[in-house]
Design a protein around this nucleic acid. Sequence first.
DNA 1: CGGCCCGTTGAGAAGCATCAAATGATGTGG
DNA 2: CCACATCATTTGATGCTTCTCAACGGGCCG
Lengths: 245, 245
Amino acid sequence: MDAFQPLMPLLDKLRRRSTFSAEESDALLAIPHRASAIQPGAYLFRDGDVPQGYGVLLAGSLYRQKFARDGSRQILAVHLAGDLLGLDQGTLAAHDYSLQSLSRADVAFISHQAMLDLVVAFPNIAQALWRETIVDASIGREWFVNIARLSARGRVAHLICELATRQDAAMLDDSTIDWPLTQEQLGDATGLTPVHVNRTLQAMRATGLISSQRHALTILDWAALRDAGDFNPAYLHLPIAIAAR
Amino acid sequence: MDAFQPLMPLLDKLRRRSTFSAEESDALLAIPHRASAIQPGAYLFRDGDVPQGYGVLLAGSLYRQKFARDGSRQILAVHLAGDLLGLDQGTLAAHDYSLQSLSRADVAFISHQAMLDLVVAFPNIAQALWRETIVDASIGREWFVNIARLSARGRVAHLICELATRQDAAMLDDSTIDWPLTQEQLGDATGLTPVHVNRTLQAMRATGLISSQRHALTILDWAALRDAGDFNPAYLHLPIAIAAR
DNA sequence: CGGCCCGTTGAGAAGCATCAAATGATGTGG
DNA sequence: CCACATCATTTGATGCTTCTCAACGGGCCG
């Protein structure tokens, strides 16, 4: 079925915050696109490139990043399946961040024109895309405050809470989530060195907050983790049913 | 003349990144609005409030902020005259940050409906507003990287460079800019304590980068300041003519 | 089986926070 | 116009969080 409806992850994600008529749903699933498999570590675009179109992440995970002059990397956001890509870059003259794959991923590429045709024909879809972009920016602001205001333990705890909440339905069981990040990448996302990330994770395991395997992470004490990370899911702008946990 | 064209600061700002027909310019200046004087320190809206409409900052300066649970404040952005307000919050159920005035300010309030009417009638204006929102998000990402990756000196230097570049035309002379922030606010914007901001500024004065008066700041060595703050104005997405300095 | 990335551990240093208090500016009311 | 309250800036001493540098062990993949 998914083979015939490759854009279903997009529709699923949009439905969390918007509702569509049957006609609109059909139009979303029928967006002209070119699906492509992305190798781990490949760039979809780089800081400074000219935007060539939009995308939808069908499977896998990607991250946005910028580099400082000293070569250090800051991860700005993690994209999960269903996320729209590059919408926040519009048709500007140049991208202001890079988009790289974290794992093997499937991406559907959509031309600027195809997207424009869609939103002109369906204002309600335009509104839904606009809403997703706003939420995206909201998540960025939340990350900002975390890095600026929380301790190492708080930053790591917050990111764990966010990814758990965003994966939600896709969770393996009630408390174990996919964990796509290495400790080095977690450091690049939280503004910490890998060494300190390691020590922070050890402390969190020692105090019974989490346990972690290779590519998975188990939340042992959600209340304590949420508390440590000062996590309040309001910034995700999810329906109450999903946000409550 | 400004008395008859109160929204002129908006048009001036939009023209830096977009071009408009005479008809479009007229439509922009004719947006139905209610102008209002804002007292220093007053809130235009608070985190969690329901968005009531949009705004244009006609004069003065505002800042966006979020609070961490421990009460510490993070300033997310500084708004200068001509900036659009709350566009990035759309018609979501709740604001995810607070908007407070830094000085006495004049703001034109615009209803959601009036803005919707405008962008439906003039797609080119919709595009221009979309572009401003994108740039806004781009500035947010740049701040993020600064706070996460630069030293105290670098963060302060970068913010000075940005405000100088954004004020640009409004600069008093070639190197002196309006400086609306106290040292405490500068700390809230850069993720530093006021004490450390003070010491950082002293070091920058001692090394001949800047000199500062009460509400003004003079850049003595632009090259060194740009270097210290790793400042590259690309993220402002300004026309080359303005970005080059 | 070997190389390589990832995770782990240790010791020492640096940058920034914290706490406390003094000095200097600004605006207000008598 | 001066006295005073308030806010912003400055200074000093101390400590903690996190970084840096260096090395070692373990699991995964070719």
